[in-house]
């Protein structure tokens, strides 16, 4: 398992430079209102992205209180949920993102470190 995890990591490291131009990370954070949990999640996400992705990312925050119809698209059940739309495959991370290590695993970023 560990070897497998490392491989894509190495790959990204190698592949990343040529792809930098269009290899944007598109992230989407689903929340429901300005709850403490939502704010914590957003702060955590911002921090991790800054640390890991050198500005090659975009974060879209979707408040389901305002657009509930958007919940079905990515099968949102738990909140907050973070969706990695790009790069594919789509990844889904739930919770307030306070466990950084698990967030990195979820985003396939752990091997970068």
């Amino acid at each position: 398992m560990k070897a497998k995890k490392e491989n894509p990591g190495i790959k990204t490291k190698e592949v990343k430079p040529p792809k930098t131009t269009d290899d944007m990370w598109v992230l989407r954070l689903y929340v429901a209102g300005q709850t403490p949990k939502a704010i914590t999640a957003f702060t955590n996400l911002k921090r991790i992205c800054e640390e890991q992705l050198n500005g090659k990312y975009s974060i879209e925050v979707i408040d389901l209180m305002e657009d509930p119809q958007l919940a079905a698209e990515f099968q949102i059940v738990a909140l907050p949920t973070l969706i990695r739309k790009l790069p594919v495959p789509v990844r889904k991370i739930i919770g307030d993102l306070s466990d950084t290590e698990r967030v990195l695993i979820g985003l396939d970023l752990l091997a970068v470190n």
């Binding site: 689903y30 429901a32 949990k37 914590t40 999640a41 955590n44 389901l64 209180m65 509930p68 119809q69 919940a71 079905a72 099968q75 949102i76 059940v77 738990a78 909140l79 907050p80 949920t81 973070l82 990844r91 889904k92 991370i93 739930i94 919770g95 307030d96 993102l97 306070s98 466990d99 698990r102 967030v103 695993i105 979820g106």
Partner: peptide, 27 residues
């Protein structure tokens, strides 16, 4: 309304609730 929750696709990273389900149902 089909709700699919796949454990293998989900990474748990801290506190959460099922508000998403509530919102979908409510909607």
């Amino acid at each position: 309304e089909h709700v699919r929750v796949e454990r293998s696709e989900i990474e748990e990273t801290g506190e959460y609730n099922l508000e998403g389900l509530f919102i979908r149902l409510n909607y």
